[in-house]
Design a protein around this nucleic acid. Structure first.
Length: 337
DNA sequence: AGTCCACTGGAACTTGAGGAAT
DNA sequence: ATTCCTCAAGTTCCAGTGGACT
């Protein structure tokens, strides 16, 4: 193992690294912490909806606030991404595992059993649940459930503020007392500060000039995730070539790469069949359904039946990855851009 | 207008995993 | 060990919709 030239601590350069202080977002942090504070006194906390565009620190902040709370109190904490786990069963399954449940629950366990276990788990101990990408939730009854647990703080994370508009009246009213916290895109200076912070803890001294951080901030339009990814990609390349400083053109090369990386990270959320469909559409621009199914069948080893593909595609449509145009015989599938 | 065809999506059904009861 | 049960995921079946073509 040779001595690193550029990178000090690689973990710090990951976009989802949880820093021990959050630069900026002081106001937002305060609002979330205030809403959850009653948990410390064993009282009912206020639900929180954190909303804003991608890469604005919503998820990181939620984890950060919970981390700080855990310093004061013995807390049960469950995090669940509702994109990956969209059904009621999967969410409870996930949360129970996150909270270190000793009981093993598998696909055969009735959902009600999971709900019961969860309920008894959070009844007497303060808990916080974070539901990320809550707009992807399939069964909104979960939200109703969560508001019933008196000592459980609920942080919901979404891109849009209006996620609850078309919900059932009962569920909406149970969420009506929530606190909305808006995260807007970072300003140029804020992005630079965030990058400086990562530089300080993640890179060696003198590894990258301020000027280059500004260059990154210029292109990422307020998305810290893309910015950090770009810095990491450039740093890794410099490291590989044994340089002591990141050259300007490495940054320029890394920027489009970082944009793409952030995009494909969302493709990880698709199953392999959906990825195959996505891949086909990417090569073909637009396709009629019949044609799409045919190509899919010749591409994968164990093809699923057409009806299942339709389910997959409508799911992908919900995520905003594909789009179907026209009706009847004129239907075409195309990737959204 | 009538026929054909591609496509959609609801609903019933099958399969497979795995816990619980015996 | 065996049988029974529940659930999610996938499949089968099919009626309905609406272009396209005569």
């Amino acid at each position: 193992m040779t001595r690193n030239t550029v990178i000090g601590d690689k973990r710090v350069l990951a976009a989802d690294f949880l820093p021990n202080r959050m630069v900026h977002r002081g106001q937002e942090r305060q609002e979330i912490a205030d809403a959850l504070r009653p948990v410390l006194e064993g009282e009912r906390p206020r639900n929180v909806l954190v909303h804003g565009p991608p890469g604005t620190g919503k998820t990181t902040m939620a984890r950060y606030v919970v981390d700080r709370l855990e310093e004061h109190i013995d807390l049960q904490y469950g995090f669940c991404n509702c994109w990956r786990n969209s059904s009621r069963f999967k969410i409870y399954y996930r949360l129970l595992n996150e909270m270190g449940s000793r009981m093993i629950h598998r696909t055969g366990t009735p959902t009600d059993k999971l709900v019961d276990d969860f309920e008894s788990k959070v009844r007497n101990r303060p808990s916080v649940v974070v539901l990320d990408e809550v707009d992807q939730l399939e069964d909104e009854k979960v939200l109703y459930d969560m508001t019933r647990y008196n000592r459980t703080g609920l942080i919901m994370i979404a891109n849009q503020e209006n996620v609850f508009y078309d919900l059932d009246e009962r569920i909406r009213s149970s969420l009506s007392s929530r606190k909305n916290v808006r995260f807007s895109a970072y300003t140029h200076e804020e992005i630079v500060d965030i990058l400086r912070d990562r530089r300080q803890w993640g890179l060696r001294d003198g590894a990258v000039e301020d000027e280059l951080l500004h260059r990154i901030a210029d292109t990422v339009s307020g998305d810290a995730r893309v910015a950090i990814n770009a810095l990491r990609i450039a740093a890794e390349k410099a490291e590989k070539e044994g340089l002591e400083q990141i050259p300007e053109e490495f940054i320029d090369d890394a920027l489009p790469e970082a944009e793409e990386l952030t995009e494909t990270e969302s493709l990880d959320k698709l199953n392999s069949d959906q990825q195959a469909l996505y891949e086909i559409l990417r090569q073909e621009e637009t396709l009629r359904p019949r044609e799409l199914y045919d190509r899919y069948r010749s591409k994968v080893e164990k093809p699923k039946v057409d009806r299942t593909l339709r389910n997959y595609l409508s799911e992908m449509e919900k995520y905003g990855l594909v789009e179907s145009r026209g009706q009847g015989t004129g239907t075409e599938y195309v990737l959204t851009d």
